[in-house]
Each structure stands twice: as C-alpha cells, then as structure tokens.
Nucleic acid binder design. Sequence first.
DNA 1: CCTACCGATCGGTAGG
DNA 2: CCTACCGATCGGTAGG
Lengths: 217, 217
Amino acid sequence: MVSAGASRFMGIRNEVTALKRERTIAVAVELFYERGYENTSLDAVAEQMGVTKPFIYAHFTSKAELLAEICARGIGSALDALESVLVLPGSPSDRLREVGQRFVTAVLHSQRHIAIFSREEKNLTAADFTRISEMRREFDRKLVALLDEGVERGEFNVPDTRMAALAIGGMISWAYVWYRPHGRLTLAETSEELTQLILRMVGAPMTPVARPHKRKD
Amino acid sequence: MVSAGASRFMGIRNEVTALKRERTIAVAVELFYERGYENTSLDAVAEQMGVTKPFIYAHFTSKAELLAEICARGIGSALDALESVLVLPGSPSDRLREVGQRFVTAVLHSQRHIAIFSREEKNLTAADFTRISEMRREFDRKLVALLDEGVERGEFNVPDTRMAALAIGGMISWAYVWYRPHGRLTLAETSEELTQLILRMVGAPMTPVARPHKRKD
DNA sequence: CCTACCGATCGGTAGG
DNA sequence: CCTACCGATCGGTAGG
C-alpha cells in the first residue's frame, strides 16, 4: 500500500502519481459504496474529481483493477490487524482480547471497503478473487491457530475452533452492515462490547466486564 | 408466498401461473447467485428455462421485482424462523436455543437468497429496499426482546442486548459466506455448534462445557 | 408468449 | 489527459 510515509522515498513525480491513484480510489470507494459498482460509471468517478475518464485509465488498466485494489485494502487491513497481534507476547486470552480490539477497529475504519468486497465479489476477475480470498483464508487459519493455542493451554473452551473462528470473523465482519459512525455507541465502545462477546464465546477466563465507563476509585 | 399447499385453493390456471413464477424465481436465484444480478441478463434467465424474455415479463413487471421477491424470501425465512419460536412456551434459554437451531437452519437453506440480498441491496428499488430492511429490523427487535427477557429473569448475562442481537444475527447471517452443503460438517452439526456458541455468548446456563462466571467487581 | 427491435448506457480507446 | 467516438450489452416493449 502506498502511504504518505513512503513519500520521502519517491521522486516528486511518483509522489504525484501516487496521490492521483489515492484520490481516484477514495472517490471510487465512496461511489461504489453508495451506488454499487455496476451502477457507478467511470465517467461519474472522473466527474466527481473534476477530470475525465482517460485520467483514470492513465493510472488503472481497468475498472476491475480499481475494484480489486479497494477490496484488497479492506481485507488487508483486517489481516494486518490480526498479524500485528500475533507477534506480541502474552497469553492467548490477552492476545485474543487485543485481536478483538484491533480487528473490530480495522473493520469499522474500512467499513466501506469491506462492504464493497462483500457485495462485489462477482465483479472481480477470477485472479483477483482468488488472491483476495486467499487473504481471507489466511486470516481464518491464523485465528484458528490462536484459538487452538488457547485450548491447548486450557484457557479457552471451544469444541470446534474452526467453526468458532468463522463465527468470530462473521460476527465482526458483519458489523459493516449495521455500524454507524455517529450511532448510539462510539467506535471504541462498539469495539469493547464485541470483544467481550468474543471472549465470552470462547470461554476465556472472565475479566470484570470492562464497560467503557470511567472508574472512580 | 405461494406454496404447493395452497394449490387446492387455486384454479388450475392460477396454479400454472404460480408454477411459472416459481420456476422463474428458482432459475433466477441460481444465476444471480452464481454470476451476480447485473451480470445476469433476463435473456439468460429465459434461455435457461427454454423460453424467451417476454415469458418473464408476463409474470414480473421488471427485473427489479424479481430481485425483490428473492430477497424478501431470504429475509422472510429467517424472520419466520424467529417468530415461530416466540409463540412457544419455555424459558428464555430454551427458546434462544430453539431460535439458534431454526435460524441457522433457515439461513443455510436460504443461503443463496441471503447472499443475493446481502450483495444486491443497491439494485433494489428504494421502496423494496425499505420494505425488506424493515423485516430485518423487525428481526432484530424481536431478538432483542428475547434477550431482554432472559436478562430480566437472570438467565442471561449481557451488558448490551442490542449489540448482542446484532452480533448473533451477524454471526449466523455470515454463514452464507462459508457454509458448503457437502463440507466438513453437516447442516445439523453446524447448527448445533453455532447454537452452542450463541448460548455461551449470552452467558446462558446449562452449556455442557460452561464455567461459572465471576460476577464480582 | 414469440420475433424483432429500440434506446440508453458505458467500458475502453484513437488521435491529438 | 482531453474530445470524441465506437461497439457491445441489455432492459423493456410493439406487434402479432
């Protein structure tokens, strides 16, 4: 992924190119999310940016490539969140709690990307779909491994870790459907609640229900 | 919904009409699910049935109506499953267990319908989308009410029943993504496992492998 | 309910 | 990277 932090390694030319790609992707995310991929013409994307279609084709070879980039970022952010925890020390319970927090946060921050991947799967090329699905399977495998470790150490009580991983993944991924940034609960509260539900589901040792309230000691 | 059981109340003419609608819907479900709604022409649907497009327009006013019917059946089957339990006697735990079984079963039987609704939301007319979304909200409200009842009676331990209902709904709905009819687990096994996870998540008693929850803080 | 067709949309590109 | 365009697709319908 091209991030602002990489700028210092790029010439001004590449930097401008990267910026144009980023802007195009950002606009496409918005429109694909609001109207759907097939209901969004590249003319509409270009118009939203104040340019014309060939501008887009200077940076992407096809509409489907733009879609693939968006989907890969969505799944990638969830996978990154998981992997960032797996290198940390701590008990399986501690790490699963941290996974919950980061995974939920990633999904909610990438809400639109995740929604687009969920909806537009059939509009990806076969190669892109395979690649991105592999990322999803990678996520599942690593989550299963964490659950297995917790079971082995006697911290979790789960009869079928593969199914539990799918249940956890689904329960969180589905949040893209109902979460609203200015809804009843903040992102942090939502993340905290869902993490508690995950821990309870796998029978992790109960910590006092950490409601997002200020403690008054 | 028109079912075979209604035949005795219909003339042969209406029965034939109903049959044609059913066949059209069945073929459309298959193709919309496999290729996506926008990638499926009505010519393709008609061809699959050995007829031509005007055959379809004799029974549906538009492609979007066909889509709406499919989506409504998917959500309707989940809602029916929930409502069929709410009229039964029994403790909240008993009924939640039954909801788990029936809801999972309904989702997996309607897997393709649920997938199509999840993906094609943006292709529904505004009116259809509102109507079907209302069914989904109805589902959530009724599940929240059941959880609330369990909390009041001290059977469940859930800090936020609205979020728990969304988590349960999501975890099960998501099964359309990964469930495979001839996969590792049968439908009954999948249903049983997921139901156990639900019960554990809300702190319901009697889970065979449950541990006592510490409630001091 | 078929044949035949229309009108609109749109991804992609030639030419400059 | 713009203007201008092409070619294909497809929802929907007239006419019989």
